[in-house]
Simulated scan of single mutants.
Amino acid sequence: MAQQHPFKIEICVEGVDGLVAAQEAGADRVELCASLLEGGITPSLGVVKTALAVATIPFHVIVRPRGGDFLYSALEFQSMLEDVKALRELGVAGVVIGCLTADGRMDEERMKALVEAARPLKVTCHRAFDMTADFREAVEALVRCGVDRVLTSGQRDTAEEGVDILKATAEAAAGRIVVMACGGLNEDNIARLRRESGCDEMHFAALTTVGSAMQYRNPNVGMGGTAIEREYELTLTDREAVRRTIAAARAA
């Protein structure tokens, strides 16, 4: 299938240090998140303002008030609208959103309201798309809502497993919306999956875990229900892994 949109690579990062690592490694764009352990939630406005001060590439900010499902209460949705408006006023390049109905469809009313609040920013639907009951129906819903891009692993844990659905999603989109593949992409598989899926863009997070610089460590307290060891680990973007994976993707 012919390429419908210019090929781009987006790196999913946690915080400003991740953004800097991704842009230094050659990313076209960044998705800026907090708490990737929860799949990414909305970063603070302080993080966004700092990112704007140091960014040399566009970045899109996830608007997700919590981890878990994408069926939001009225107050959660109101907070999403307020975040989108604040991000628009700050001048970021785009936002990343997703709302579902209880029966596994895109919540078109809410998605349209978020898109309207975001304009003129670019709008991506995140992997809420992968939790829909019918991906073809979801593509049509996103087109109706005016969303610019959809992020998907082909409704499976990884792009490897979901490659057939990724290809079918790109075919269903037919150039009307950018389809960005994700899910376990790395330097060993990204070129092949780019070719096999026919997707317009690729998205990955090249993460590495490093030990904390803390010298004193209280063995009796773990925050947030995590293992105590996790208190003294940092998850960072691996510049060299990003660089190698981008090179592999562009060689496809």
Results as ranks from 00 to 15, higher is better:
144 R>I: 09
216 Y>H: 14
252 A>K: 06
228 I>F: 07
121 L>W: 01
170 A>S: 13
179 V>D: 04
45 L>Y: 14
160 E>S: 15
68 G>E: 03
29 R>P: 01
103 D>G: 07
46 G>R: 04
193 L>H: 06
149 R>Y: 08
26 G>K: 00
171 E>G: 08
219 P>K: 12
192 R>A: 15
100 L>H: 11
94 G>L: 11
165 I>E: 14
14 E>H: 01
198 G>R: 00
108 E>M: 07
45 L>E: 11
146 G>H: 05
157 D>A: 11
214 M>W: 08
75 L>G: 02
248 A>W: 06
167 K>Y: 13
57 I>R: 05
89 E>T: 07
132 T>Q: 10
218 N>L: 11
78 Q>S: 10
63 V>N: 02
231 E>S: 14
7 F>A: 09
174 A>V: 10
2 A>P: 15
55 A>F: 00
63 V>F: 11
146 G>C: 06
125 C>T: 07
195 R>A: 15
33 C>R: 06
135 F>M: 03
66 R>D: 05
188 D>Y: 08
48 V>D: 04
225 G>T: 07
86 A>K: 09
168 A>Q: 11
18 G>C: 06
122 K>Y: 01
203 H>F: 12
52 L>Q: 12
115 V>C: 07
5 H>W: 15
81 L>S: 09
9 I>Y: 07
23 Q>L: 01
165 I>C: 12
52 L>V: 05
161 E>D: 15
219 P>W: 11
123 V>P: 01
60 H>W: 04
77 F>G: 10
202 M>K: 06
181 A>N: 05
238 D>L: 07
188 D>Q: 14
67 G>N: 04
69 D>R: 09
6 P>N: 12
95 V>I: 13
233 E>T: 13
219 P>E: 13
216 Y>C: 11
248 A>P: 05
243 R>T: 02
224 G>C: 00
130 D>P: 09
183 G>Q: 04
140 E>V: 00
235 T>F: 05
246 I>T: 05
170 A>V: 10
242 V>R: 00
86 A>T: 13
28 D>L: 09
63 V>Q: 03
218 N>A: 14
198 G>C: 04
11 I>G: 01
1 M>Q: 13
128 A>G: 05
182 C>A: 14
157 D>W: 01
26 G>H: 05
211 G>W: 00
22 A>W: 00
160 E>G: 12
151 L>T: 07
21 A>M: 02
136 R>T: 03
81 L>T: 13
85 K>E: 09
7 F>M: 12
154 G>T: 12
205 A>D: 00
46 G>E: 10
128 A>E: 01
139 V>Y: 10
202 M>W: 10
53 A>S: 15
63 V>A: 11
249 A>I: 06
144 R>N: 14
213 A>G: 05
162 G>H: 09
77 F>E: 03
232 Y>H: 14
106 M>S: 01
107 D>M: 07
62 I>S: 04
228 I>T: 15
234 L>P: 00
227 A>K: 12
50 T>K: 10
235 T>E: 09
201 E>Q: 14
20 V>D: 03
187 E>K: 11
43 P>Q: 04
170 A>T: 10
41 I>P: 03
22 A>E: 02
150 V>Q: 12
175 G>D: 10
119 R>Y: 03
58 P>Y: 02
62 I>C: 06
170 A>E: 04
201 E>M: 13
217 R>E: 13
52 L>F: 06
217 R>W: 03
180 M>R: 08
182 C>W: 00
214 M>C: 11
106 M>G: 00
140 E>C: 00
61 V>I: 05
66 R>Q: 08
